[in-house]
């Protein structure tokens, strides 16, 4: 079991403070849902947790250690807009290879069709691209997975399929899942704990 924590983290964009002295911890057995009104800093928090940006004060610790600087990050973020997270000039198979070898059945379980592999991102739909982004994040065997509103652009069926897979994968591999969502129904369905960012 591993623990991801924010220790007295502060972050601001210029004069606008997003977090002041904020502490929060997650462990890899839980599925935590984060919610807050738009503009409260959900995406900023995700970026801090996955090591995309550094807090101005305080630390982000994984099992008591700062996130590694080199090599794949054990906290992987799945972006809200998959089309931005994929290089438009690379075919999907090339983008996937970037993360390293995949487990045999991940593509199949995510419902990725073989013919999508040779396509460019612009030839796929949002849901199809999002599946690739998830597969790519899982290929580095992360300890935590952060899903930043990954299903707002997806239809109900794709949503079910993706969440179904993510939940069972996270249970099998003891990966902590942190999901950001507006949807009350999704929070009720998926999360073992719900955190309101406004209460921090």
């Amino acid at each position: 079991m591993s623990v991801l924590e924010l220790q007295q983290v502060s972050f601001s964009y210029g004069a606008k403070t997003v977090f002041a002295n904020c502490s929060l911890s997650f462990d890899s057995h839980e599925r935590v849902a984060l919610y807050a009104p738009s503009g409260r800093g959900k995406t900023t928090l995700c970026r801090l947790l996955a090591g995309y940006s550094k807090p101005q004060a305080g630390q982000v610790l994984l099992d008591g250690q700062p996130l590694p600087q080199m090599g794949p990050c054990p906290v992987q973020l799945i972006w809200q807009h998959p089309e931005q997270a994929l290089d438009p000039l690379l075919r999907m198979q090339t983008s996937l290879q970037e993360a390293g070898p995949l487990e045999e059945d991940v593509l199949h379980r995510l419902g990725i069709k073989p013919e999508w592999l040779t396509r460019y991102p612009r030839e796929l739909s949002g849901g199809e691209m999002q599946r690739f982004c998830i597969a790519r994040a899982l290929a580095v065997h992360p300890q935590f997975l952060i899903a930043d509103e990954i299903s707002t652009m997806l239809d109900a069926l794709t949503q079910v399929q993706i969440w179904d897979f993510l939940c069972s994968y996270c249970d099998e591999h003891e990966v902590g899942l942190i999901l950001v969502t507006h949807s009350q129904a999704l929070q009720d369905r998926l999360a073992t704990r719900v955190v309101n960012l406004d209460s921090l």
């Binding site: 198979q93 290879q97 995949l102 045999e104 059945d105 199949h108 073989p114 013919e115 592999l117 040779t118």
Partner: peptide
């Protein structure tokens, strides 16, 4: 058409390359 259609998705990446 980029490539002829291939079979199993698990092996997909390796053989396509």
């Amino acid at each position: 058409e980029t490539l002829p259609q291939q079979s199993s998705p698990a092996k997909g990446i390796a053989c396509k390359e």
